[in-house]
Amino acid sequence: MSKGVAVHWRLIPQRYNLIGTECKGCGQKFFPPRQLCPNCRRSGNITEITFSGEGKIYSYTLIHVPSEGLGFMKPYAIGIIRLDEGPLLTAQIVDCKPEDLAIGKRVNSVFRKVIVDGDSGIIRYGYKFKLTE
């Protein structure tokens, strides 16, 4: 299987290191990265920024009917994480029991396998989050 290898490769900076962008004009930070500031438009000044991976659970849900490739993990938690720098992102929350999860709890990013392309395809690594001990 080699479908989407180039897409994964292109997204490695975001997926491995939470690299997004910031508009130096208005200060807003973006993840996934934006190349144009929606506030400042042509007068915006976009630069790269690495997010700390620290944040809070903004919302979450438990998935009982898994997406393809994630059957072993069910039930698993998908959260909307509010990064300390501002942006919201969606990610799996791992190494916890469903009853441990709550809106507002602090989380930090971890490096995990996200999905594996069958027995012979690539292993797609990326960010997930876990509760901060």
Binding site: F72, M73, V94, D95, V110, F111, R112, K113, V114, I123, Y125, K128
Partner: peptide
Amino acid sequence: PSLDEDTATIAVECAR
């Protein structure tokens, strides 16, 4: 190891 951990994820965490 957790279901989504392998030698690469462990190596990355300790390297960081």
